[in-house]
């Protein structure tokens, strides 16, 4: 009964008359599990905020009525208007013109490099998945290495390669080949092949090999079997591979920086150049537009993927 003074936060267990915390073992477990859930939630939301806050700020400031990038001065749609007017040609601001030109270059490079890389990457994937030749395993391993080679290494090595190649070719054939779209595209294709091949291979690995045998069995030759059976089966992988190559190419800075030439300024090079002076709100507006465009692309590709996987 001397324990009476200890009531309040403490209670006596009716069975043992020992003093215990007001929460029994069961409650304690529930409390800890609840705490863990709060922790998980905090980590997930914290991570998301960390990821998205800068992007949200970018979108917000693309509507900022000021040339200063870091101070909110009120709402405007002016920067989008500038871009729009430049595109339809009712107005021609030189700085916007330059920016849009860089966007055009970027799109050109990434579409072309994406297509070439997708064709080569798909063929590489098919060769590695279906071929039985010596060295296949080695090639398979080599395929993954470009995914982890630093961009800087790739950029420098490509620049050096082109320098040597141009020296050789120009001497031999008396040409004046130099850095330009060609070198940028070749550079992008070089690093994109691996990404495409890996994505397409994953799709091929999931394809039932009996399907091709069934096609042969029903009278289709190799060519017919590829186009009517294999290609439709791996098409989602090919599209995903192209999208990956396209986006990697679109925002590549390092490889492009080392291998571009006169008049081939891409958007990433252009924006980096602006940092020395100042980033205009138009860049924010443009980035927002690209964010929307890429989101739409991803949604479309996911939709197509699920459509295909249903089949």
């Amino acid at each position: 009964m001397a324990n009476k003074a200890l009531t309040g936060p403490f209670v006596r267990s009716p069975h043992t008359s020992e003093i215990s915390l007001p929460i029994n073992r069961h409650d304690r477990g529930r409390f800890l599990r609840g705490a863990a859930q709060v922790g998980y939630k905090a980590i997930a939301y914290g991570g998301m905020i960390f990821l998205w806050l800068p992007i949200v700020l970018l979108v917000v400031f693309s509507f900022n009525d000021s040339r200063a990038v870091n101070q909110w001065q009120g709402f405007t749609g002016q920067w989008y208007g500038n871009i729009f007017n430049n595109i339809i040609g009712t107005e021609a601001r030189f700085s916007t013109e330059l920016m849009l030109h860089a966007v055009g270059n970027s799109l050109f490079v990434s579409v072309v490099a994406g297509i070439i890389a997708t064709i080569i990457g798909t063929m590489v994937a098919l060769s590695l998945a279906r071929g039985h030749y010596p060295g296949r395993r080695l090639l398979d391993g080599l395929l993954y290495i470009p995914l982890v080679i630093p961009d800087i290494t790739q950029g420098v090595s490509l620049a050096m390669f082109f320098m040597i190649a141009f020296g050789f070719i120009n001497n031999l054939l008396g040409l004046g080949a130099n850095y330009g779209f060609g070198t940028i595209i070749v550079g992008h294709v070089a690093f994109n092949i691996s990404y495409v091949a890996v994505v397409v291979r994953a799709r091929l690995a999931h394809m039932n090999p009996r399907l091709e045998e069934a096609a042969y069995d029903l009278g289709a030759n190799g060519w017919q079997t590829f186009w009517r059976i294999t290609f439709p089966q791996i098409l989602p992988g090919i599209i995903a591979g192209w999208l990956l190559a396209f986006t990697l190419s679109l925002d590549d800075y390092v490889v492009t920086f080392f291998n571009n030439g006169v008049g081939t300024t891409t958007l990433s090079i252009f924006v980096y150049g602006m940092l020395k002076t100042s980033v205009t709100p138009e860049i924010n507006a443009l980035s927002t537009l690209m964010l929307v465009a890429s989101t739409v692309l991803v949604v479309i590709s996911l939709g197509m993927q699920s459509q295909f996987s249903k089949r």
Binding site: N208, R210, L211, E213, A214, A215, D217, L218, I229, P232, Q233, F308, R311
Partner: peptide, 14 residues
């Protein structure tokens, strides 16, 4: 001049 019925049928899913 032979045709096969496969164990997993191998119908073309698309």
């Amino acid at each position: 001049p032979v045709n096969t019925v496969f164990q997993d049928y191998a119908l073309f899913p698309h």
